[in-house]
């Protein structure tokens, strides 16, 4: 972690900055965002995730298109299905760990006290960090998706451009939601080790445990379709997955009776409902993190 360069963040600048209050507040937030982004770039994890995500998404795109060329047909659907699994594994991990390290890491190193001593509000600090990390993660995935799109364009032509774009939008929302949750865990934890542990546990829960639990519940309690659907979309990963599939197929019929039920009941608004679920996962954990962060001390 690079140390804070004092000439950028001490009070002088902000006080001498000529302009209305909210401009300087914006400036503080952006300055924090920049610093966070810079930290992300200079730390190894960002580079590692970018390389890993790029290589995996190129691999998945290439493998799922193998053999399709001879048939003059683009297997875009399969590429997306392959990418879905990859995204659902890697992106939450990346965002949760990044978010978990953000505040707790500063707190552990003692730099958080220093930051809070500056004439900035805690909200600015937290939001600034969130924006910086969010942009860093989205850029990291943007590189991966860009390379993946190149593979698609080369092998399959322009098939599925719209749904591929929607895949990117939903993935960014998923990343922001997971980042939001990670920051909440970070605010709650005293040390970065604990925060990371909590982040990993949340990842395991969201990716595997909750789905497996719901599967068992469906079989054991003979849950009805509406119950299965309602419980399933609480999980942001399922909401993300359904959102991508709805935009790809215009219906959730491929997800069996539960999907058919959802498509019939909600129709065209289904895509919005799923997107709103993800937005909820962005807003609520972040809001909670803000409230807790403002109440807690810097230590």
């Amino acid at each position: 972690m690079t140390t804070l360069s004092t000439d950028q963040f001490h009070g002088h600048e902000i006080q001498t900055h000529a302009g209305p209050g909210h401009t300087s507040r914006m400036y503080c937030t952006i300055a924090f965002a920049k610093r966070e982004f810079f930290d992300a770039l200079s730390s190894r994890w960002f580079l590692l995730y970018t390389v890993a995500f790029s290589v995996l998404s190129i691999g998945v795109s290439y493998m799922s298109l193998a053999g399709s060329g001879s048939q003059g047909f683009a297997g875009f659907g399969r590429t997306t299905a392959g990418l879905l699994n990859l995204i659902m594994l890697v992106v939450p991990l990346m965002a949760l760990i990044a978010g978990a390290g953000s505040i707790a890491g500063e707190r552990e190193r003692g730099t958080l006290l220093y930051l809070l001593a500056q004439p900035i509000t805690r909200t600015e600090l937290l939001i600034g960090k969130y924006i910086g990390l969010g942009i860093a993660i989205c850029c990291s995935m943007g590189i991966g998706f860009g390379l993946s799109a190149a593979v698609l364009a080369f092998n399959a032509g322009g098939v599925g451009l719209g749904s591929f774009s929607m895949l990117i939008v939903f993935t960014c929302m998923l990343a922001l939601a997971m980042l939001s949750l990670g920051m909440l865990l970070s605010v709650l934890s005293r040390r970065s080790g604990i925060a990371t542990g909590l982040g990993l546990f949340s990842w395991l829960t969201l990716v595997f445990l909750s789905d497996l639990g719901l599967m068992a519940g469906t079989v054991l309690f003979k849950l009805r379709v509406q119950e299965v659907f309602a419980i399933a979309i609480i999980n942001p990963l399922q909401a993300f997955k359904m959102g991508v599939i709805v935009n790809m197929n215009a219906s959730l019929d491929v997800l069996g009776p539960v999907g058919s039920y959802a498509s019939r009941t909600f129709g065209d608004s289904l895509s919005w409902i799923l997107a709103l679920t993800l937005v909820g996962w962005i807003v609520f954990p972040l809001g909670l993190a803000l409230i807790l962060f403002c109440k807690r001390g810097g230590i």
Partner: peptide
């Protein structure tokens, strides 16, 4: 199919990132 929109999207994503 026309591969260019996808190619443009690819380049756009990569370079904007």
């Amino acid at each position: 199919t026309n591969p260019w929109p996808m190619a443009v999207l690819s380049a756009g994503l990569f370079f904007s990132s």
